[in-house]
Each structure stands twice: as C-alpha cells, then as structure tokens.
Simulated assay, not measured.
Amino acid sequence: MDYRITSTYSRSKAVNYAIKHAKNPNPAYRYFPVVGDNGGDCTNFTSQCLFAGVAPMIFSGKNIWWYKNHGWSISWATAHSLYWYLKINAHDNLYGAKGREVSSSSLLEKGDIIFYRNQRGKITHSAMITSFKNGSPLISQHTPEVLNISYIKPWASKMYFMKISL
C-alpha cells in the first residue's frame, strides 16, 4: 500500500481502481460478506477507491480513516461512518479526504461518491461514480459486485451526492 502525502485527489486513479476491482475484489483487503441483512463490502470497496485516488489514511486525531494489516476503522468499512468522516473533514477542513454534499447528480464527476439511505433512515450503501451515460452517473460497487450500472436504486429513500477532494 502506498502512504503518500498529497494535496490533490486523483479521480482517474480512484476510477481506474474501481473499474479493475468492481467485479474482482482485491485480495489484499478483507472482503465483507452479507450476513443476514447486515454487512456487505460496499464501503470497504469505496474506501479502497478513495485510497487508490491518493486519499491519505488517518490513524489518529479527531477523525480517523484507515486500513492496515487486515484491521480497519469503522469509517473505512461502514457507509454512514464514511459519509460522516467525509462531511466532518470538509466542514472542519481536516487533513484527509473531504466530501461536500451537492444537490444534484448533474454536479458529480467520475471519482465522486453516492451514499444511499434505506427506508428506516440509515445510510447503508455507498458506490463510486465510474462513468456517465447521457449525462447520468454510472456507478461501480461491491455487494453486489457490478461495473458501470445506473446509480438509481429503487429501495433507497434518499441519495446523498458527495463531491470528493483532499
């Protein structure tokens, strides 16, 4: 794993990683299966994409986000925690990946993230934008492992469109 310090998010590196590993999970990382109606690998995969886009891991401080030796922070692997990690970093201008929520999918670019809220009001899924078709984002994700599908999920009660930066 590369622990570079940078000030620019590489959308192309994040997207290339997502495309390479959307259907074939990277064996260097633990895969989180669905157990009952819990779990899944979506946010672990989204975090891997962010890291591939040179987002630095944060091991200490106010807002942590990391994966090392098959251990991980909650914000690395849980959708609502990654959502809040990105928002807090943007709001407080903390070191690391930042997420700024925008009101429309038309404001998104490749390498941005969409978070999904379920009918019970919990953010339970995340996906990386890897392409566009007729101006509409296509996502790649885990759980299930898919590449360049429509971002619309009928089960979602709300979608959060997140612009990513460092």
Rank of each mutant, 00 (worst) to 15 (best):
K163E: 07
W155V: 05
M162W: 03
G39F: 04
M57V: 05
M128P: 01
K122L: 10
Y3N: 11
G39V: 02
K62C: 03
K163Q: 13
I58H: 04
T143D: 03
C49T: 09
R117N: 00
I149A: 01
T143A: 02
N148R: 11
L138D: 07
Y67P: 02
T124A: 00
P144F: 01
I164K: 02
L147A: 03
P27C: 01
G40I: 02
S126A: 15
S131N: 15
S165F: 08
S81I: 00
W155Q: 08
N63K: 13
S157H: 07
I74D: 06
I88S: 08
S12I: 14
K87W: 09
I64S: 11
S7F: 11
F59C: 10
F115M: 03
Y67M: 06
K163M: 06
T43S: 10
L138S: 05
W84V: 11
P25Q: 07
N63L: 14
K158P: 00
V54G: 00
D37N: 15
M159N: 13
F45A: 03
K68E: 13
R100H: 12
W65M: 09
W76H: 05
Y151T: 07
I58L: 13
K98S: 08
P144E: 02
L50T: 04
F59R: 12
A156C: 08
L82F: 08
F32C: 00
Y160P: 04
R4E: 12
N69F: 05
K122S: 13
P137N: 14
I149M: 08
L147H: 09
G121L: 09
E101R: 13
L108G: 07
P144G: 06
L86A: 12
I139W: 02
K110R: 15
Y31T: 07
T46D: 02
N69H: 11
S47I: 05
Y17K: 06
G40N: 03
Q119S: 15
H142A: 05
A77K: 03
M1I: 08
V54M: 09
V146I: 09
I152N: 08
P25C: 05
S140E: 11
Y151A: 10
N26C: 04
I164M: 04
N26L: 09
F132E: 09
I164W: 03
P137K: 13
G71M: 11
N93E: 14
I58D: 02
R100M: 10
N38Q: 12
V34R: 13
D41Y: 01
Q48H: 08
N93Y: 10
N89H: 12
G36P: 04
S136G: 06
G61Y: 12
K163P: 06
T43N: 14
F59V: 10
L50P: 01
M159W: 01
D37E: 14
H91C: 09
W84Q: 14
S140L: 10
F51K: 05
I19S: 00
T130E: 10
A28P: 00
K20Q: 15
G36E: 10
A18Q: 05
G121R: 08
M128V: 14
A14L: 09
G71H: 14
T8S: 15
T46Q: 01
V102Q: 04
S126P: 01
K163G: 04
C49L: 06
K13T: 00
N38P: 00
G40F: 02
C42N: 06
Y3Q: 11
D112I: 07
K98D: 06
S73N: 08
N69Y: 10
